[in-house]
Amino acid sequence: MAIEIANGKVAAFRPLGNDTADLQVGLISPQFVDLQVNGGGGVMVNSQPTPDGLRAIAAAHRSCGTGAILPTVITDSHDVIEAAAEAALATQGEPGLAGLHIEGPHLATERRGTHDAARIRPLDLKTVSLVERLRAANLPVMITLAPELADPDLFARLVASGAIVSGGHTQATAEETRTALDRGLGCFTHLYNAMPPMTSRAPGILGAALNSDAHAGIIVDGIHVTWDMIRIALRARPRKGLTFAVSDAMATVGGPNHFNLYGQKIFVRDGALINAEGSLAGAHIDLVKSLANLVNHVGLPLDEAIEMVCDIPCRVMGLPAPALPLGCAVTDLNILTNDFRKLDIS
């Protein structure tokens, strides 16, 4: 197919015919959608929970091929989480900012990963009321918590608000997970990571998640989860279209090779971000690289891989389906070579 571009916009889609294309590309698609973005462009949501902070993070990811993000505020004081919520409300409807992901602080300490143990606390009315206020303003919200530790009544209020309640950083058993699913748990946060290992007699939250019809995110950098385990997870789901890729990106994506988190300076080393305790501290990857990994390392067909970085995340959050309409700006597209390098033709 040929795409005709005039004045920086898509003017026509048509068969190539006998034309000679000006640019040889492997894939043209809408920009991707990432539901777990802690930072980018040298900025972390937690360190700069302001409208300008969220805009800077969105701009950094847009330059890497992700057109819409859920800025993700991780475990912190209620004041920081509330500031991030106010920033999300202030930027609601702006390009690239699709809502808010609150990851913690209502987690299992044993599975906290890089989250600050001193700031982890039970699900409380403050958080629930904040989420209800965001949802009353029609802001898409995902909240990650340990379902086995959540007060049932407060959990029910989160579900009733229309927020996507996601299980993560958790010690939940399979039975506890199935109970939470029955009560409205709708998603799982970064499969495998911050979850107990699945064994033959203790499937845990991971086994229950894989067998469920709920959506689940997964980090596709080959560091958080090996390629073999990603293949196993995708084959284990009841059907296609349930699992999506997230970056779990930190400030280093589109930014410098280090950032500060909870007073620690964390550097990129061999593609990984590791804190002083030896735990993974988020990821240094974007969704274009995740797409390449899904095709080249996991072995997915291109159409299934694109769904995981584009269509499925939109369905999870009730966002408009991605499209390539006539008249859209070239800057709204991902134009990739056959080896998934992003081309800039603006």
Rank of each mutant, 00 (worst) to 15 (best):
G17M: 08
A216G: 14
A88D: 03
R133H: 15
G204L: 12
P313R: 03
D286G: 14
D153L: 14
G327T: 10
D332H: 05
L134I: 09
T72A: 06
K9A: 12
N211P: 01
A305T: 04
L107C: 09
S212F: 05
T177F: 08
V80E: 01
T50K: 00
G186S: 09
Y262F: 14
I205H: 05
C310F: 02
K342W: 00
L210G: 12
G167W: 05
S166Y: 04
A305R: 09
Q36R: 07
I69E: 00
G278W: 07
S200G: 14
T226F: 09
D270Q: 13
A174Q: 09
L291N: 10
A245V: 09
N260G: 07
K126H: 15
M198C: 15
S129W: 01
N296C: 07
P203D: 08
S247V: 03
L242D: 06
H61W: 02
A272M: 13
L302G: 03
V268C: 08
A272D: 15
T20Q: 15
I223P: 05
F340N: 06
T226G: 15
V220D: 09
P203H: 11
P325R: 12
P71Y: 01
A84P: 09
L139S: 02
L326Y: 01
F155G: 02
P313E: 04
F244R: 06
L54T: 04
H106V: 10
D228F: 08
I74V: 15
A172G: 06
V288K: 02
R239C: 06
L333A: 05
A163G: 10
M44I: 03
T91Y: 00
C64G: 03
D52S: 07
A146C: 09
L261H: 04
L181T: 01
A59C: 03
L336Q: 12
P256S: 11
A68F: 07
D34W: 03
L294D: 01
G327P: 04
H101N: 06
I205G: 01
T75K: 05
I143M: 11
R112E: 07
G318N: 12
L206E: 05
G184L: 10
L134F: 05
R269Y: 05
